[in-house]
Amino acid sequence: MSPANFVLQRATALIMAPLVIAHLILIIAAVQGGLTGEEILARTRGSLGWGVFYGLFVLAAAVHAGIGLQTILREWTNLAKQPVTIASHGFMVLLIVLGGRAVYAVIA
């Protein structure tokens, strides 16, 4: 593993930890508080704060998972370097697109 990936892997884990906790508290509070989907969307739509919060979440998760997948493929399969790079980068882009769509749907 390159030092860049090693540092990125740890940095993204550090970013995700508080975001996951905040997200869990948030959904529990929203459900307990009896908020409907409409009411939640009313709060998130147009909110730059929530956009940044979940945007960061998606980016960190995608990078973290991409590097992790690269390591697993390298260790557990006989694939050469190039297909491993393509698969892990492809997976990272896929997560960014899917996550980005979800964030867009609640923010825009």
Binding site: M1, S2, P3, N5, F6, T71
Partner: peptide, 9 residues
């Protein structure tokens, strides 16, 4: 050692 296949693995 900080290379592919090195200590970081």
């Amino acid at each position: 050692v900080a290379v592919a296949g090195g200590c970081l693995n």
